[in-house]
Design a protein around this nucleic acid. Structure first.
Lengths: 205, 205
DNA sequence: GTCTATACTGAGATAGAC
DNA sequence: GTCTATCTCAGTATAGAC
Protein backbone atom coordinates (compact mmCIF):
# COMPACT_ATOMS: atom_id res chain seq x y z
CA UNK A 1 0.00 0.00 0.00
CA UNK A 2 1.34 3.40 -0.89
CA UNK A 3 -0.94 5.20 1.52
CA UNK A 4 1.94 5.84 3.91
CA UNK A 5 4.18 7.10 1.14
CA UNK A 6 1.58 9.56 -0.11
CA UNK A 7 0.82 10.83 3.37
CA UNK A 8 4.52 11.52 3.86
CA UNK A 9 4.81 13.30 0.51
CA UNK A 10 1.74 15.46 1.07
CA UNK A 11 2.71 16.43 4.60
CA UNK A 12 6.32 17.12 3.64
CA UNK A 13 5.22 19.32 0.77
CA UNK A 14 2.97 21.35 3.02
CA UNK A 15 5.40 21.75 5.90
CA UNK A 16 8.41 22.51 3.72
CA UNK A 17 6.34 25.10 1.90
CA UNK A 18 5.34 26.67 5.20
CA UNK A 19 8.61 26.54 7.12
CA UNK A 20 11.37 25.68 4.69
CA UNK A 21 13.39 22.52 4.24
CA UNK A 22 16.01 22.97 6.95
CA UNK A 23 13.46 24.03 9.55
CA UNK A 24 11.21 21.05 8.87
CA UNK A 25 12.41 17.98 10.72
CA UNK A 26 11.48 14.47 9.72
CA UNK A 27 10.05 14.03 13.19
CA UNK A 28 7.68 16.93 12.60
CA UNK A 29 6.59 15.48 9.28
CA UNK A 30 5.91 12.01 10.63
CA UNK A 31 4.03 13.38 13.62
CA UNK A 32 1.63 15.31 11.38
CA UNK A 33 1.36 12.50 8.87
CA UNK A 34 0.78 9.93 11.62
CA UNK A 35 3.44 7.54 10.41
CA UNK A 36 6.67 6.13 11.76
CA UNK A 37 10.07 7.75 11.41
CA UNK A 38 11.68 4.70 9.87
CA UNK A 39 8.98 4.63 7.18
CA UNK A 40 10.51 7.77 5.69
CA UNK A 41 13.86 6.10 5.28
CA UNK A 42 12.23 2.94 4.00
CA UNK A 43 10.30 4.74 1.26
CA UNK A 44 12.75 7.51 0.39
CA UNK A 45 16.15 6.69 1.81
CA UNK A 46 16.94 10.10 3.24
CA UNK A 47 15.52 13.52 3.90
CA UNK A 48 17.17 14.84 0.77
CA UNK A 49 15.64 12.16 -1.42
CA UNK A 50 12.25 12.88 0.11
CA UNK A 51 12.67 16.49 -1.00
CA UNK A 52 13.59 15.27 -4.47
CA UNK A 53 10.33 13.40 -4.81
CA UNK A 54 8.32 16.29 -3.43
CA UNK A 55 9.89 18.59 -6.00
CA UNK A 56 9.55 16.14 -8.84
CA UNK A 57 5.79 15.96 -8.40
CA UNK A 58 5.59 19.75 -8.67
CA UNK A 59 8.12 20.09 -11.47
CA UNK A 60 5.82 17.90 -13.52
CA UNK A 61 3.31 20.75 -13.38
CA UNK A 62 5.51 23.13 -15.35
CA UNK A 63 8.25 21.43 -17.32
CA UNK A 64 6.04 19.51 -19.78
CA UNK A 65 4.01 22.68 -20.36
CA UNK A 66 7.19 24.62 -21.05
CA UNK A 67 8.33 22.10 -23.62
CA UNK A 68 4.91 21.98 -25.26
CA UNK A 69 4.88 25.77 -25.58
CA UNK A 70 8.32 25.77 -27.09
CA UNK A 71 7.25 23.07 -29.54
CA UNK A 72 4.27 25.14 -30.56
CA UNK A 73 6.36 28.28 -31.00
CA UNK A 74 8.86 26.37 -33.11
CA UNK A 75 6.08 24.92 -35.26
CA UNK A 76 4.66 28.41 -35.78
CA UNK A 77 8.04 29.79 -36.76
CA UNK A 78 8.55 27.14 -39.39
CA UNK A 79 12.23 26.85 -40.20
CA UNK A 80 13.02 30.31 -38.87
CA UNK A 81 14.30 30.61 -35.30
CA UNK A 82 11.84 31.47 -32.56
CA UNK A 83 12.19 35.02 -31.26
CA UNK A 84 13.95 35.48 -27.93
CA UNK A 85 10.83 36.93 -26.35
CA UNK A 86 8.81 33.90 -27.43
CA UNK A 87 11.39 31.52 -25.95
CA UNK A 88 11.27 33.42 -22.68
CA UNK A 89 7.47 33.35 -22.71
CA UNK A 90 7.50 29.61 -23.21
CA UNK A 91 9.73 29.32 -20.17
CA UNK A 92 7.97 31.71 -17.79
CA UNK A 93 4.30 31.66 -18.75
CA UNK A 94 3.80 28.10 -17.42
CA UNK A 95 5.14 29.26 -14.07
CA UNK A 96 2.54 32.02 -13.91
CA UNK A 97 -0.20 29.56 -14.79
CA UNK A 98 0.98 27.05 -12.22
CA UNK A 99 1.16 29.84 -9.65
CA UNK A 100 -2.53 30.62 -10.16
CA UNK A 101 -3.73 27.02 -10.28
CA UNK A 102 -1.43 25.63 -7.57
CA UNK A 103 -0.43 28.27 -5.02
CA UNK A 104 1.40 25.63 -2.98
CA UNK A 105 3.76 25.25 -5.91
CA UNK A 106 4.95 28.84 -5.62
CA UNK A 107 5.39 28.55 -1.88
CA UNK A 108 7.50 25.43 -2.24
CA UNK A 109 9.64 26.84 -5.03
CA UNK A 110 10.14 30.08 -3.14
CA UNK A 111 11.43 28.12 -0.17
CA UNK A 112 13.73 26.03 -2.28
CA UNK A 113 15.21 29.07 -3.95
CA UNK A 114 15.56 30.89 -0.63
CA UNK A 115 17.50 28.05 0.90
CA UNK A 116 19.85 27.74 -2.05
CA UNK A 117 18.65 24.24 -2.88
CA UNK A 118 17.73 25.03 -6.46
CA UNK A 119 21.08 24.38 -8.16
CA UNK A 120 21.18 20.81 -6.91
CA UNK A 121 17.48 20.30 -7.67
CA UNK A 122 17.80 21.82 -11.11
CA UNK A 123 20.49 19.38 -12.08
CA UNK A 124 18.26 16.46 -11.18
CA UNK A 125 14.85 17.56 -12.41
CA UNK A 126 15.14 20.57 -14.68
CA UNK A 127 18.26 19.94 -16.67
CA UNK A 128 16.69 18.29 -19.71
CA UNK A 129 14.09 21.04 -19.96
CA UNK A 130 16.67 23.79 -19.66
CA UNK A 131 18.79 22.05 -22.27
CA UNK A 132 16.02 22.38 -24.85
CA UNK A 133 15.76 26.07 -24.07
CA UNK A 134 19.50 26.57 -24.40
CA UNK A 135 19.24 25.16 -27.91
CA UNK A 136 16.33 27.46 -28.73
CA UNK A 137 18.25 30.49 -27.48
CA UNK A 138 21.19 29.39 -29.57
CA UNK A 139 19.05 29.37 -32.72
CA UNK A 140 17.49 32.71 -31.84
CA UNK A 141 20.91 34.29 -31.30
CA UNK A 142 23.21 32.80 -33.93
CA UNK A 143 25.89 35.47 -33.45
CA UNK A 144 26.47 34.52 -29.84
CA UNK A 145 29.10 31.88 -29.00
CA UNK A 146 27.56 28.85 -27.36
CA UNK A 147 29.43 29.43 -24.13
CA UNK A 148 27.95 32.90 -23.86
CA UNK A 149 24.47 31.47 -24.43
CA UNK A 150 25.07 29.10 -21.54
CA UNK A 151 26.22 31.91 -19.29
CA UNK A 152 23.24 34.06 -20.17
CA UNK A 153 20.89 31.20 -19.35
CA UNK A 154 22.83 30.88 -16.12
CA UNK A 155 22.25 34.58 -15.41
CA UNK A 156 18.58 34.12 -16.22
CA UNK A 157 18.21 31.30 -13.72
CA UNK A 158 19.95 33.35 -11.05
CA UNK A 159 17.71 36.33 -11.66
CA UNK A 160 14.69 34.03 -11.58
CA UNK A 161 15.86 32.50 -8.31
CA UNK A 162 16.07 35.90 -6.63
CA UNK A 163 12.73 36.86 -8.17
CA UNK A 164 11.15 34.00 -6.30
CA UNK A 165 12.81 34.78 -2.99
CA UNK A 166 10.36 35.06 -0.15
CA UNK A 167 10.83 37.63 1.22
CA UNK A 168 12.72 39.70 -1.36
CA UNK A 169 15.92 41.49 -0.43
CA UNK A 170 14.48 44.98 -0.27
CA UNK A 171 11.77 45.87 2.20
CA UNK A 172 10.55 48.56 -0.20
CA UNK A 173 9.65 45.79 -2.64
CA UNK A 174 8.18 43.50 -0.04
CA UNK A 175 5.69 46.11 1.08
CA UNK A 176 3.97 46.26 -2.26
CA UNK A 177 3.54 42.49 -2.26
CA UNK A 178 3.97 42.40 -5.99
CA UNK A 179 2.53 39.11 -7.17
CA UNK A 180 4.52 36.59 -9.11
CA UNK A 181 2.89 37.45 -12.42
CA UNK A 182 3.93 41.09 -12.11
CA UNK A 183 7.43 40.15 -10.99
CA UNK A 184 7.92 37.83 -13.92
CA UNK A 185 6.77 40.50 -16.36
CA UNK A 186 9.47 42.82 -15.05
CA UNK A 187 11.96 39.99 -15.23
CA UNK A 188 11.14 39.06 -18.82
CA UNK A 189 11.54 42.60 -20.13
CA UNK A 190 14.91 42.74 -18.37
CA UNK A 191 15.96 39.39 -19.79
CA UNK A 192 14.91 40.05 -23.37
CA UNK A 193 17.30 42.99 -23.50
CA UNK A 194 20.04 41.06 -21.75
CA UNK A 195 19.85 38.12 -24.13
CA UNK A 196 19.82 40.40 -27.15
CA UNK A 197 22.90 42.32 -25.99
CA UNK A 198 25.85 42.19 -28.37
CA UNK A 199 28.45 39.51 -27.63
CA UNK A 200 30.99 40.46 -24.98
CA UNK A 201 34.29 40.48 -26.78
CA UNK A 202 36.71 38.07 -25.15
CA UNK A 203 40.39 38.68 -25.03
CA UNK A 204 42.56 36.19 -26.88
CA UNK A 205 44.92 34.05 -24.91
CA UNK B 1 43.98 38.53 24.51
CA UNK B 2 42.19 38.08 21.22
CA UNK B 3 44.46 35.32 20.01
CA UNK B 4 41.74 32.71 20.47
CA UNK B 5 39.18 34.82 18.65
CA UNK B 6 41.45 35.34 15.65
CA UNK B 7 42.37 31.68 15.47
CA UNK B 8 38.68 30.81 15.36
CA UNK B 9 37.97 33.39 12.67
CA UNK B 10 40.89 32.32 10.48
CA UNK B 11 40.14 28.63 10.79
CA UNK B 12 36.43 29.13 10.22
CA UNK B 13 37.10 31.19 7.12
CA UNK B 14 39.37 28.53 5.69
CA UNK B 15 37.15 25.54 6.46
CA UNK B 16 33.93 27.21 5.36
CA UNK B 17 35.65 28.21 2.13
CA UNK B 18 36.77 24.65 1.58
CA UNK B 19 33.69 22.70 2.64
CA UNK B 20 30.81 25.12 2.95
CA UNK B 21 29.01 26.45 6.00
CA UNK B 22 26.60 23.62 6.68
CA UNK B 23 29.26 20.95 6.25
CA UNK B 24 31.67 22.66 8.63
CA UNK B 25 30.86 21.83 12.23
CA UNK B 26 31.97 23.97 15.12
CA UNK B 27 33.75 20.93 16.51
CA UNK B 28 35.80 20.64 13.35
CA UNK B 29 36.73 24.31 13.57
CA UNK B 30 37.79 24.20 17.19
CA UNK B 31 39.79 21.04 16.65
CA UNK B 32 41.84 22.63 13.89
CA UNK B 33 42.14 25.92 15.72
CA UNK B 34 43.13 24.17 18.94
CA UNK B 35 40.61 25.98 21.11
CA UNK B 36 37.64 25.01 23.22
CA UNK B 37 34.11 24.65 21.92
CA UNK B 38 32.62 27.06 24.40
CA UNK B 39 35.09 29.76 23.37
CA UNK B 40 33.19 30.06 20.11
CA UNK B 41 29.99 30.85 21.90
CA UNK B 42 31.77 33.13 24.31
CA UNK B 43 33.26 35.23 21.53
CA UNK B 44 30.54 35.01 18.90
CA UNK B 45 27.34 33.74 20.49
CA UNK B 46 26.40 31.24 17.80
CA UNK B 47 27.59 29.58 14.62
CA UNK B 48 25.57 32.03 12.57
CA UNK B 49 27.14 35.05 14.25
CA UNK B 50 30.56 33.53 13.70
CA UNK B 51 29.77 33.40 10.00
CA UNK B 52 28.67 37.01 10.15
CA UNK B 53 32.05 38.12 11.46
CA UNK B 54 33.92 35.99 8.98
CA UNK B 55 31.96 37.57 6.16
CA UNK B 56 32.24 41.08 7.53
CA UNK B 57 36.04 40.93 7.45
CA UNK B 58 35.90 39.97 3.78
CA UNK B 59 33.13 42.36 2.83
CA UNK B 60 35.39 45.16 4.05
CA UNK B 61 37.69 44.26 1.16
CA UNK B 62 35.17 45.23 -1.50
CA UNK B 63 32.39 47.45 -0.26
CA UNK B 64 34.51 50.53 0.57
CA UNK B 65 36.27 50.20 -2.80
CA UNK B 66 32.92 50.02 -4.55
CA UNK B 67 31.73 53.18 -2.88
CA UNK B 68 34.99 54.99 -3.60
CA UNK B 69 34.74 54.08 -7.27
CA UNK B 70 31.18 55.28 -7.45
CA UNK B 71 32.21 58.53 -5.76
CA UNK B 72 34.94 59.03 -8.32
CA UNK B 73 32.63 58.29 -11.23
CA UNK B 74 30.10 60.75 -9.88
CA UNK B 75 32.75 63.41 -9.43
CA UNK B 76 33.89 62.88 -13.02
CA UNK B 77 30.36 63.12 -14.34
CA UNK B 78 29.80 66.46 -12.62
CA UNK B 79 26.08 67.09 -12.29
CA UNK B 80 25.20 64.65 -15.07
CA UNK B 81 24.19 61.12 -14.08
CA UNK B 82 26.83 58.41 -14.25
CA UNK B 83 26.36 55.99 -17.15
CA UNK B 84 24.87 52.60 -16.38
CA UNK B 85 28.01 50.83 -17.53
CA UNK B 86 30.14 52.94 -15.19
CA UNK B 87 27.86 52.17 -12.26
CA UNK B 88 28.13 48.48 -13.02
CA UNK B 89 31.91 48.75 -13.29
CA UNK B 90 32.10 50.45 -9.92
CA UNK B 91 30.15 47.53 -8.49
CA UNK B 92 31.95 44.62 -10.15
CA UNK B 93 35.52 45.74 -10.72
CA UNK B 94 36.37 45.69 -6.99
CA UNK B 95 35.26 42.07 -6.90
CA UNK B 96 37.67 41.18 -9.68
CA UNK B 97 40.48 42.97 -7.90
CA UNK B 98 39.68 41.28 -4.61
CA UNK B 99 39.53 37.95 -6.40
CA UNK B 100 43.10 38.40 -7.66
CA UNK B 101 44.54 39.71 -4.40
CA UNK B 102 42.57 37.46 -2.05
CA UNK B 103 41.62 34.15 -3.63
CA UNK B 104 40.14 32.95 -0.34
CA UNK B 105 37.58 35.71 -0.70
CA UNK B 106 36.15 34.20 -3.87
CA UNK B 107 36.05 30.74 -2.37
CA UNK B 108 34.14 31.98 0.66
CA UNK B 109 31.68 34.04 -1.35
CA UNK B 110 31.12 31.19 -3.77
CA UNK B 111 30.20 28.93 -0.87
CA UNK B 112 27.90 31.49 0.66
CA UNK B 113 26.07 32.00 -2.59
CA UNK B 114 25.87 28.26 -3.23
CA UNK B 115 24.26 27.61 0.11
CA UNK B 116 21.72 30.38 -0.29
CA UNK B 117 23.08 32.34 2.64
CA UNK B 118 23.65 35.51 0.67
CA UNK B 119 20.22 37.14 1.06
CA UNK B 120 20.51 37.12 4.84
CA UNK B 121 24.15 38.19 4.72
CA UNK B 122 23.43 40.94 2.23
CA UNK B 123 20.83 42.48 4.48
CA UNK B 124 23.34 42.71 7.30
CA UNK B 125 26.55 43.70 5.54
CA UNK B 126 25.84 44.84 2.00
CA UNK B 127 22.59 46.73 2.24
CA UNK B 128 23.99 50.22 2.70
CA UNK B 129 26.38 49.74 -0.21
CA UNK B 130 23.67 48.41 -2.46
CA UNK B 131 21.44 51.29 -1.48
CA UNK B 132 23.95 53.80 -2.85
CA UNK B 133 24.04 51.88 -6.12
CA UNK B 134 20.26 51.79 -6.35
CA UNK B 135 20.28 55.58 -6.16
CA UNK B 136 22.97 55.79 -8.85
CA UNK B 137 20.96 53.53 -11.16
CA UNK B 138 17.93 55.69 -10.51
CA UNK B 139 19.79 58.79 -11.69
CA UNK B 140 21.19 56.97 -14.71
CA UNK B 141 17.74 55.73 -15.70
CA UNK B 142 15.31 58.56 -14.93
CA UNK B 143 12.51 57.08 -17.04
CA UNK B 144 12.32 53.94 -14.97
CA UNK B 145 9.95 53.83 -11.97
CA UNK B 146 11.81 53.35 -8.72
CA UNK B 147 10.20 50.00 -8.07
CA UNK B 148 11.47 48.73 -11.40
CA UNK B 149 14.98 49.94 -10.54
CA UNK B 150 14.79 47.93 -7.34
CA UNK B 151 13.67 44.82 -9.17
CA UNK B 152 16.41 45.16 -11.75
CA UNK B 153 19.01 45.44 -9.00
CA UNK B 154 17.37 42.37 -7.51
CA UNK B 155 17.78 40.54 -10.82
CA UNK B 156 21.40 41.70 -10.97
CA UNK B 157 22.15 40.26 -7.56
CA UNK B 158 20.52 36.98 -8.49
CA UNK B 159 22.51 36.74 -11.70
CA UNK B 160 25.67 37.59 -9.76
CA UNK B 161 24.88 34.92 -7.19
CA UNK B 162 24.61 32.23 -9.86
CA UNK B 163 27.73 33.57 -11.54
CA UNK B 164 29.65 32.83 -8.37
CA UNK B 165 28.23 29.35 -7.91
CA UNK B 166 30.87 26.73 -7.48
CA UNK B 167 30.40 24.57 -9.43
CA UNK B 168 28.18 26.24 -12.05
CA UNK B 169 24.97 24.59 -13.17
CA UNK B 170 26.20 23.40 -16.54
CA UNK B 171 29.04 20.94 -16.85
CA UNK B 172 29.88 22.43 -20.25
CA UNK B 173 30.73 25.68 -18.49
CA UNK B 174 32.57 24.06 -15.62
CA UNK B 175 34.98 22.31 -17.95
CA UNK B 176 36.39 25.52 -19.29
CA UNK B 177 37.06 26.78 -15.77
CA UNK B 178 36.29 30.29 -16.85
CA UNK B 179 37.82 32.56 -14.25
CA UNK B 180 35.83 35.09 -12.32
CA UNK B 181 37.10 38.03 -14.32
CA UNK B 182 35.87 36.50 -17.56
CA UNK B 183 32.56 35.52 -16.01
CA UNK B 184 31.94 39.01 -14.70
CA UNK B 185 32.71 40.53 -18.10
CA UNK B 186 30.01 38.37 -19.63
CA UNK B 187 27.69 39.29 -16.80
CA UNK B 188 28.23 43.03 -17.13
CA UNK B 189 27.49 43.10 -20.85
CA UNK B 190 24.30 41.18 -20.13
CA UNK B 191 23.33 43.52 -17.32
CA UNK B 192 24.02 46.77 -19.17
CA UNK B 193 21.45 45.80 -21.76
CA UNK B 194 18.99 44.58 -19.14
CA UNK B 195 19.16 47.79 -17.14
CA UNK B 196 18.77 49.91 -20.26
CA UNK B 197 15.70 48.01 -21.43
CA UNK B 198 12.55 50.12 -21.78
CA UNK B 199 10.22 50.10 -18.79
CA UNK B 200 7.86 47.15 -18.62
CA UNK B 201 4.41 48.65 -18.90
CA UNK B 202 2.33 47.69 -15.89
CA UNK B 203 -1.35 47.11 -16.09
CA UNK B 204 -3.50 49.52 -14.07
CA UNK B 205 -5.57 48.14 -11.26
C1' DG C 1 37.24 38.85 31.35
C1' DT C 2 38.65 34.20 29.25
C1' DC C 3 38.40 29.81 28.79
C1' DT C 4 37.56 24.50 30.12
C1' DA C 5 34.77 20.55 30.97
C1' DT C 6 30.63 18.65 30.64
C1' DA C 7 25.80 18.06 29.89
C1' DC C 8 21.44 18.86 27.27
C1' DT C 9 18.29 18.65 23.31
C1' DG C 10 17.14 17.49 18.89
C1' DA C 11 18.61 16.08 14.35
C1' DG C 12 19.15 12.18 10.59
C1' DA C 13 20.23 7.49 10.11
C1' DT C 14 20.13 2.34 10.90
C1' DA C 15 19.69 -2.71 12.64
C1' DG C 16 16.78 -6.02 13.56
C1' DA C 17 12.24 -7.89 15.46
C1' DC C 18 7.66 -8.58 13.84
C1' DG D 1 6.23 -3.20 4.93
C1' DT D 2 6.33 -1.45 9.41
C1' DC D 3 7.94 -0.18 13.98
C1' DT D 4 10.97 0.01 18.28
C1' DA D 5 15.16 1.09 19.99
C1' DT D 6 19.39 2.95 19.48
C1' DC D 7 23.49 5.35 17.38
C1' DT D 8 26.15 9.31 16.10
C1' DC D 9 26.65 13.95 15.59
C1' DA D 10 25.10 18.54 15.51
C1' DG D 11 24.45 23.33 17.97
C1' DT D 12 23.74 25.14 22.39
C1' DA D 13 23.87 26.18 27.51
C1' DT D 14 25.91 26.36 32.01
C1' DA D 15 29.03 25.90 36.08
C1' DG D 16 33.08 26.98 37.52
C1' DA D 17 38.49 27.29 37.13
C1' DC D 18 41.95 30.78 36.22
Amino acid sequence: MTDTKDKILDTAERLIGEQGYAATSLRHIIAEAGVNLAAVHYHFGSKEELLDEVVMRKAALVNPVRLARLDRAEALAGNKPVAVSAVLDAFFAPMVEAACAHPEFVRLMGRIHSEGLMPAIAKKHFYSTIDRFVKAFGRALPDLPESEILWRVHFMLGAMAYTMLAPPLFPQIAERETDLEQRLKLLVSFLVAGFCAPPSQREEK
